[in-house]
């Protein structure tokens, strides 16, 4: 599945109302580690159909980043059935992204 762009208007629909797993990637254009994470998230998105990935630009979406208490990026937040279940801060390798999401 392609990575979708999340914003304050579609976040409820894309993330909170989703009954499965959604991995939200909080990032910014100026953040080097976020750019390194991106191709790995693209791979995960291509490989797995049991998780949706939503990208949130924290500069455009300060309301969302404040709501979820983001104070360091990259920050990956996993939602299951619309509720936050896990989070990881900083650049992590591909297998740790898979660990965060968990089994299919």
């Amino acid at each position: 599945m392609a990575i979708l762009e999340g914003n304050k208007n579609n976040f409820e629909e894309l993330v909170l109302n989703n009954n499965g797993k959604v991995l939200v990637d909080f990032n910014a254009e100026w953040c080097g580690p976020c750019k390194m994470l991106k191709p790995m998230l693209d791979e995960v998105a291509a490989d797995r159909d049991d998780v949706s990935i939503v990208s949130v630009n924290i500069d455009d979406e300060d309301e969302l980043s404040a709501k979820y208490g983001i104070s360091s990026i990259p920050c990956l937040v996993l939602f299951e059935n619309g509720a936050e279940s896990k989070r990881s801060v900083g650049l992590i390798p591909r297998d740790e992204i898979e660990n965060l999401i968990g089994g299919k």
Binding site: S71, S72, C75, R87, V89
Partner: peptide, 8 residues
């Protein structure tokens, strides 16, 4: 555990 929750 506070990295990203106030510690940087």
């Amino acid at each position: 555990e506070l990295i990203g929750k106030g510690i940087s």
